[in-house]
């Protein structure tokens, strides 16, 4: 608990990142709405991005990830956006075929 009293350092970034990650996973695993699942995906990715930023900061540690981390974060942001776009299109296609967005109804393929 001591980290709640310390100045903001690496562990805080990592904690928030982990929290986002877990939220995202839970969201992905439990939501019935396809768009909700996509939101979960975004959360997961953002959690990871936060991790990268934290590790890359030269102010928290002497040995750090450096510019690599920042660049990775930028790339992942863009990638997440692209992926979200495609996923949305696929969700729309699904809606056009099934007239619903409930992923539990998407269980014709099994076995």
């Amino acid at each position: 608990m001591s980290f709640l009293y310390e100045p903001i350092g690496l562990s805080h970034y990592l904690a928030v990142g982990a929290f986002l990650f877990v939220c995202g996973i839970v969201c992905m695993a439990t939501k019935r709405n396809a768009l909700g699942i996509l939101i979960g995906i975004e959360l997961v990715l953002n959690g990871a991005i936060l991790n990268f930023i934290g590790f890359a900061s030269p102010y928290f540690r002497d040995e750090n990830l450096g510019l690599d981390g920042h660049l990775i974060a930028l790339f992942v942001i863009v990638l997440a956006a692209a992926e979200a776009a495609v996923a949305l299109a696929i969700a729309l296609n699904f809606y056009n075929n099934h007239a619903t967005i409930d992923v539990d109804r998407a269980s014709e393929l099994k076995g």
Binding site: G17, F21, G24, I25, M28, A34, I37, L38, G40, I41, V44, L45, G47, A48, N51, V76, E83, V86, A87, I90, A91, N93, F94, N96, N97, H98, V103, A106, E108, L109
Partner: peptide, 21 residues
């Protein structure tokens, strides 16, 4: 196909997210 694509996209994104973490 649409159902398969949805499953693929969601699963893939999820796995990729876990990997990124």
């Amino acid at each position: 196909g649409s159902e398969a694509a949805l499953k693929y996209a969601v699963y893939g994104a999820g796995a990729a997210g876990v990997m990124l973490y």
